[in-house]
Amino acid sequence: MGAALALVRDDGPAPVAAPAPALLQVAGVSLEYVAQDRIVRATHRVSFEVQRGDRFVLLGPSGCGKSSLLKAIGGFLAPTEGEIRLAGAAVREPGPDRIAVFQEFDQLPPWKTVLANVMFPLRTARRLPRAEAREHAMQALVRVGLADFAEAYPHTLSGGMKQRVAIARALAMQPTVLLMDEPFAALDALTRRRMQELLGLWADAPFTLIFVTHSIEEALVVGNRILLLSPHPGRVRAELDAQRFGLHSAGSADFQAQARRIHRLLFEEDRPA
């Protein structure tokens, strides 16, 4: 068991530069939840560190506890064991320094227009004056290409546009970390590609992103660092580098090899020797 969990570093990239104190530290975190009077363990002693500016991907099949981990970082779920520290302070409750973008389309209050949606946290959490919040919100909408829809209500938008509004809302807040739970999972492939291009755009103004997905391709394209989680309960299988992959390397041999390796780690060698 211990051997199977050891960090594999056979063909990894050049060693990381002198480690700065990590922005986010997840140390030995176990998460449990109650399902029909049984306690189910979602993750078992998961540890990892996220550096400032990382696009850190939590990757694994369903049941690996990746969404639960994201919720725990968001402060929505308290660990039964271990600790999560953000910029040195323990995470205890939800807060606007960690803005989450969820998979579900109903994360936009339907009673607010697109612009009001983006302004909502700026006004309530950051307490910006109306004019300033409006300006920030419009800039964020321009970045996701939805400036023309500022006065529309969410129910008139497509699923992909709703997700982009949610992303604009998160970006406008400039959180310490941005948490994304499979924001493109319910969208079609073409929109996903557009979203990934958007992620590339964000590299211009770097921020720290923690991204949950079950798609190996998406993990490799979006992330610079990938945490592989094995299911039932979620345990760390490997921590891999994906710095060198982007949208345009998606077909390359190196990319394919890394994807195969991840597949092997997740699905073939998961039985302890």
Binding site: G74, F76, P94, G95, P96, F102, D106, P109, P110
Partner: peptide, 25 residues
């Protein structure tokens, strides 16, 4: 649940949470 989490994400609590999130929803 997603809308609730969104509201809590912005640090809304108590009466503000009820008035700004729950009641309109």
């Amino acid at each position: 649940e997603t809308l609730r989490m969104t509201g809590r994400n912005y640090g809304l609590r108590g009466l503000r949470y009820v008035l700004l999130v729950l009641a309109p929803a």
